[in-house]
Every structure is written in structure tokens, then in C-alpha cells.
């Protein structure tokens, strides 16, 4: 007879991989501290926390998309577009709340657009989101005409710059959304169906799951979170800038993959992704502390993603 008794013990084993990457994070931080002790200063930790919030939010969305068997290359550009839009709306006299709501609606619609193309027209996800990557960045430049949108209301800056009991506000936003995503992936029918869809779309469909709706949900979530991130960045910079978020899609994908999300779909955890986002932020921060020219950052990010994916594939091959 099969008993549940050992269920808890077995479930614990699943956290093992997260422990491994947590260890990697600690070693990495330790290494950077030795080279530059300023790493552990409270000022720097605040900076890292705000960076984690940005990478984390994008990576959570990316994780959902990848679990569902897709990919979203548009998040970096969408961050720029939504940041510019929220600034534009406020500049034109809309209230902060209304501006934010409209921007979140627009970004969700972009996600819906991606989802519909992927599911109904069967356009490969990397193509349609690559299209948005170019188009959203272009649109952001059209709106700003190369100049940042400044002169935003003071109260808006709290979102990106404020803190509550010393905890940066963006981090609180991250924790909120991470909790929601964690709950969805782990404890809901929707979450289970997402994993099933990414794991084997045909089997999931034949099990009575509306796989198209599930996938559309992931793209909408990803774009929505990119919208949130765009608003945070605009608030942090006190302006709407068309140039922000370049290459963030890579960091988000890398964070997800480092955190154990499999690019072939059906696997990944929010906890792992959060640690992955922390690792990416520490690497970013380390590059600055080690005074490596920002021109080389793209190279490092490219190397990190290629390495992370290669390791993931080797790990799988070993398991089989």
C-alpha cells in the first residue's frame, strides 16, 4: 500500500536545487566582498535590493512564460515604453493612479497580443516578441524624440525611491508579486495546468486543459510585470527615458534559467527564479564595483546566459 506518510520528507528533497544556487549566490557575494569590501555597505545593499526588484519582477514573468513552453524577448523594451508612457500621461495632467492603471492595461494588452499570435496564429514566440522588442523601443523613442520626459509629480517618486522601515519600496512590490506567483504555481489548479502545458502540450490538451488560455495568461503576466517594472524604473530615475531596460530580457531569461527553469518548458520555481535574479543583480553590481566599463556588460550578460543554459542542458543529459 502506498502511504502519504513520507510525503513531507519527499517534498523537501525538491528544495535541494534551490539550496545549490543559494550557495552559489553566497560564494559569489563573498568573492566580490573580498575584492571590494564596499559590496557589503548598507548603501550598496540598498542598490542591490532595488536591482533585485527589477530583475526579479521581470524574471518572474519570464519564468511563467517559459514554464508554459514559450519565451518573451520583449520585456526590456516594454520596460522602456511603459516608463515613457507613464511619464507622458502624468505630464499631460492625468493623476498618478490613473496613469499607472492605463499603463498596466496597455502592457497587459501587449501580452494579450503576444499570446494571441502564439496560440491562434502559431507564430513562434521568439519572433513575435522580437518584433515587439524592436517596435516598443522604437515607439518609446518616437514619444520622447530622444529627450527624457521630466518634471513628474514628487509623490510618484516614492514607488522607486521610497522605503518602508528601511526596506526599499520596489523590494516590497517584488515580494508581493513573488508571493502571488509562488502561490499560483504551487497551490492552484491554474499553476498545475501551466506546468502540464509546458511539459507536454498535446497531453495537456487531451486532458481537457484549455492550453491556449493558459499560454495567453503567461504572456499577459509577463507583459504586466514588465509594465510594473517600467513604472518603478521611471520613478527611480524621476523621468521617462526611452533608453532604459536594454538587454533586460537577457537578464530576466538568465535569472530564470539559473534558478532552474528549463527552456524546454514545464519546469521551474519562483523561489529559484528569485535567487537567480539575486545572482544576476550581484553580478551586475560586481561589474560596477570592480570598475568594469559598462560597455562590456552586454558581453558578460551574454556569457552568463549561454553558460547557464548550457549547464542546464548538461544537467538534464546527465539525469537521463
Amino acid at each position: 500500500m502506498i502511504k502519504i506518510k513520507n510525503a513531507k520528507v519527499l517534498r523537501k528533497g525538491i528544495y535541494f536545487r534551490e539550496l545549490n544556487i543559494l550557495l552559489a549566490l553566497i560564494i559569489l557575494s563573498f568573492g566580490i566582498t573580498i575584492i571590494n569590501p564596499r559590496f557589503l555597505s548598507s548603501f550598496n545593499l540598498q542598490i542591490i535590493a532595488r536591482q533585485v526588484a527589477i530583475f526579479g519582477l521581470l524574471a518572474i514573468g519570464e519564468t511563467l512564460v517559459i514554464i508554459g513552453g514559450g519565451i518573451d524577448l520583449s520585456v526590456g523594451s516594454l520596460v522602456a515604453l511603459t516608463g515613457v508612457l507613464v511619464a507622458l500621461f502624468m505630464k499631460n495632467g492625468l493623476s498618478i493612479t490613473i496613469s499607472i492603471l492605463i499603463v498596466l492595461l496597455i502592457s497587459s494588452l501587449v501580452g494579450l497580443w503576444h499570446g494571441l499570435f502564439v496560440t491562434k496564429l502559431k507564430v513562434p514566440p521568439f519572433i513575435i516578441t522580437l518584433g515587439t522588442l524592436t517596435a516598443a523601443r522604437g515607439l518609446a523613442s518616437v514619444i520622447t524624440k530622444g529627450w527624457p520626459i521630466i518634471g513628474l509629480p514628487e509623490r510618484f517618486f516614492f514607488i522607486g525611491q521610497g522605503d518602508i522601515f528601511g526596506i526599499p519600496f520596489p523590494l516590497i512590490i517584488l515580494i508581493l508579486f513573488a508571493f502571488i506567483a509562488f502561490f499560483i504555481t504551487k497551490y492552484t489548479v491554474l499553476g498545475r495546468q501551466l506546468y502540464a502545458t509546458g511539459g507536454n502540450i498535446e497531453a495537456a490538451r487531451l486532458s481537457g486543459i484549455d492550453v491556449d488560455k493558459r499560454r495567453i495568461f503567461t504572456y499577459v503576466s509577463s507583459s504586466f510585470l514588465a509594465g510594473i517594472t517600467g513604472i518603478i524604473i521611471a520613478s527611480r530615475l524621476s523621468q521617462g527615458q526611452a533608453g532604459v531596460g536594454g538587454g533586460y530580457e537577457l537578464s530576466a531569461i538568465a535569472a530564470a534559467v539559473i534558478g532552474g527553469t528549463s527552456l524546454s518548458g514545464g519546469e521551474g520555481t519562483i523561489l529559484g527564479t528569485l535567487i537567480g535574479a539575486a545572482i544576476m543583480s550581484v553580478i551586475y553590481n560586481g561589474l560596477i564595483l570592480l570598475e568594469i566599463s559598462s560597455y562590456w556588460h552586454d558581453v558578460v550578460m551574454g556569457l552568463v546566459i549561454v553558460t547557464a543554459v548550457t549547464l542546464d542542458i548538461w544537467r538534464k543529459r546527465k539525469r537521463i
Binding site: 519565451i71 524577448l73 521568439f126 538587454g247 537577457l250 531569461i253 527552456l263 524546454s264 560597455y295 562590456w296 556588460h297 552586454d298 558581453v299 558578460v300 550578460m301 551574454g302 556569457l303 546566459i305 549561454v306 543554459v309 548550457t310 542542458i313 543529459r317
Partner: peptide
């Protein structure tokens, strides 16, 4: 055995960098 779009996305970033 990397998916082609990820591998080349990585080199896209590296080459641009």
C-alpha cells in the same frame, strides 16, 4: 544542444558588447 534562438541571443549580446 542549446535551442538556436537562445544560443544566438547570447552571442547577439556578446558581439554587440
Amino acid at each position: 544542444n542549446l535551442p538556436p534562438f537562445v544560443a544566438t541571443l547570447g552571442t547577439m549580446s556578446i558581439a554587440r558588447g
